[in-house]
């Protein structure tokens, strides 16, 4: 074939079915929104149980992370995520899934070189750049306070 890489890519793309964007966005909105609604319900529940506002937020996070880890362990989270896409990726449940999934997957390699070394193989970049971003934000906040 006489084609340069750019021409071939365009040619190959013409045979490649596109992602169903509208369908994906709808599912992401509904399921992602559903997770947020669940979070709100949990907040209300904890506050009616008499917890302080700060405690409610912490308990809410813990509950959602626990639920996500549980669903991941029962092989259900990935089946929901297949349809939900960003809807299950963006909330805190996505982060929990990204930690639990490698922990399960690399268990056969042992607790140190398997679970220990690989547990953050997906979530690691989020943690690394999250810390760097928070340091920068903290610096800005500090410098702003000096002015």
């Amino acid at each position: 074939m006489r084609m340069n890489p750019a021409d071939y890519k365009a040619y190959a793309d013409s045979f490649s079915p596109p992602s169903k964007l509208w369908r994906n966005m709808l599912f992401a909105f509904v399921i992602g929104g559903g997770i947020c609604v669940l979070g709100e319900l949990l907040l209300t529940l904890f506050s009616t149980l008499g917890f302080e506002k700060d405690e409610c937020a912490t308990l809410n996070c813990i509950s959602l992370i626990f639920l996500s880890a549980l669903l991941t362990a029962f092989h259900l989270y990935d089946n929901i995520a297949k349809h939900a896409g960003a809807g299950t990726l963006v909330p805190i449940t996505g982060f929990a899934n990204a930690v639990v999934a490698p922990a399960i997957e690399f268990r056969p390699e042992g607790m140190v070189l398997g679970v220990g070394a690989k547990i953050f193989s997906i979530a690691g970049p989020v943690i690394t750049y999250g810390i760097i971003a928070s340091i920068l934000a903290g610096l800005c906040y500090y410098l702003g306070g000096l002015l």
Binding site: P17, S19, T72, Y77, D78, A81, A98, P102, F106
Partner: peptide, 17 residues
């Protein structure tokens, strides 16, 4: 999957291709 892509239980979306 575990060698070339992601852990099995990771919630990702596959592209149509």
């Amino acid at each position: 999957e575990r060698q070339f892509r992601f852990p099995l239980e990771y919630g990702g979306q596959r592209t149509p291709t």
